[in-house]
Structures are given as structure tokens and as C-alpha cells.
């Protein structure tokens, strides 16, 4: 079965240029992420994992190379065009949840929908928010505020928020970094379920146990991407 390519990265590099040294954070990265895929990128600290995820998420700019999202070249967009892509095509899940303290669970999940250019009707937003919260089993916490929830619950709200805009892909950055192991396992379980339902996921983690849960596994070391041996042998 031919699957659509959700993300395509060709020869992407990232160089930090300071007065004294030039640091190559990413070197000639090439990846294709297909619809329904579950990709993990792992590796040591400082290896460039988060940089790569930021570039895919249009939070940072690559120094060279090409990035396509659902076949569309997004390498050089204006800030507002990039915002539009982030809003409609990408769902972010951060290590520190990044929920807005002043907003209720409901409003946090609704937030990306309020930025939509096509202006969704209130009923539609309501329906989508409730659906997403249902998916993460938090329908009963609509009116709570982030500081009234546990860490695991907060991350589930963040996942619901990421799902709200029906993104092409979920970009997940160390989702369990701020959680204890039991809660972390629950969150990973949820991601797995979502993937099983068809959600495409690209996850960055330094935890090999969680990285192994993905179907496609990459290692990023000193800015160079390597496909894990196991997969290579499978491929062979």
C-alpha cells in the first residue's frame, strides 16, 4: 500500500555561527515520515535531537536543505505562513507541557482552534475540544486549571491540544521528561494508542525504552542521523 509522505527532509543542516567557532548541530539530514508512522529520534544530550524537531516544527530555521510537509515546501515561509502551517499541520507536545496557567483545560485545548484563519464556529470548536479530551480521558476535567492537575494529566491535556487541529503529524519532545515512570508509561501508552488509530508521530527522546516503542527508530549523534541497526537488518 502506498502511503502519503507527511514529512520529507532533504539534506538539512544547522550551523551555529559564533565569533570563534562554527558548530554543526545537524549535518545533511534526510528523513521521510509516512502517514501513520511512529518515528523516534534518540541519542545523547546535545546530539541535535531537539534542534531537528524544532526545524521540523518550524520553530527554528535550517541553515541549508529542504523541508516538505505533506508535499509542500515550507523551507522559506514568512512568519505568518509558518504560523498557519504550525496551526493546521503540526501538533506539538512539549516536555514541560507548556499549558497556559490562566486558561482552563477546555480553553487550553481550544486555543489553537481560535487561531484558525478560516474561523471555526463556536459549536465546532466545542465539539472538537470535547472529542480530543475524550480521547485522552479527561472529559471530566474541562473546567479545571493546569495547576489543579497532576503532571500526567497536564501532559494529556497537552496531547489533546496537539490533536485539536487534526494535524498531519504530532511532534513530541521528551514527553515523559517531567513525569515519574508510571505516569510516563501511561502517556506513552496513550501515544501508542493514538498511533494505532492512525496518528502520525515523530518523537524525540533520550530514553531508549520509549524510543523502542516506535516503529521507525533513528539515532542522532553529533548531528549525524543513523538508522538503527535492527531496522537496517530488517530492511536487508
Amino acid at each position: 500500500m502506498n502511503k502519503d509522505i507527511k514529512i520529507e527532509i532533504n539534506h538539512v543542516s544547522k550551523v551555529y555561527d559564533t565569533d570563534l567557532v562554527e558548530t554543526h548541530a545537524l549535518k545533511d539530514i534526510n528523513i521521510k515520515i509516512y502517514e501513520g508512522d511512529y518515528v523516534s529520534i534518540s541519542g545523547p544530550s546535545g546530539g541535535g535531537k531537539s534542534t531537528l524537531l524544532s526545524i521540523i516544527g518550524l520553530l527554528d530555521e535550517a541553515s541549508g536543505g529542504e523541508l516538505k510537509i505533506e508535499g509542500k515546501d515550507v523551507t522559506s515561509l514568512t512568519q505568518d505562513q509558518a504560523a498557519e502551517v504550525r496551526n493546521t499541520k503540526l501538533g506539538f507536545i512539549f516536555q514541560s507541557f507548556n499549558l497556559i496557567e490562566e486558561l482552563s483545560v477546555y480553553d487550553n485545548v481550544a486555543l489553537p482552534l481560535t487561531y484558525r484563519t478560516d474561523g471555526l464556529a463556536a459549536e465546532e470548536i466545542d465539539k472538537k475540544v470535547k472529542e480530543c479530551l475524550e480521547k485522552v480521558s479527561l472529559s471530566h476535567r474541562l473546567d479545571h486549571f493546569p495547576n489543579q492537575l497532576s503532571g500526567g494529566q497536564q501532559q494529556r491535556v497537552a496531547i489533546a491540544r496537539a490533536l485539536a487541529a487534526d494535524p498531519a503529524i504530532l511532534l513530541v519532545d521528551e514527553p515523559t521528561g517531567n513525569l515519574d515512570s508510571t505516569t510516563g508509561d501511561q502517556v506513552m501508552q496513550l501515544l501508542e494508542e493514538l498511533n494505532a488509530q492512525g496518528t502520525t508521530i515523530c518523537m524525540v527522546t533520550h530514553d531508549s525504552r520509549y524510543a523502542d516503542m516506535a516503529r521507525t527508530k533513528y539515532q542522532l549523534k553529533d548531528g549525524v542521523l543513523q538508522v538503527e541497526e535492527e531496522q537496517l537488518s530488517e530492511a536487508v
Binding site: D80, E84, P112
Partner: peptide, 14 residues
């Protein structure tokens, strides 16, 4: 941090 998050979620400059 909050403002950055809003931008990450798709808020435009304006």
C-alpha cells in the same frame, strides 16, 4: 514562555 507557546500553536504576529 507563554507567548512562545501561543506562537508555536499557530498564533500569527498580529
Amino acid at each position: 514562555f507563554e507567548l512562545g507557546t501561543r506562537l508555536a500553536l499557530g498564533s500569527k504576529r498580529k
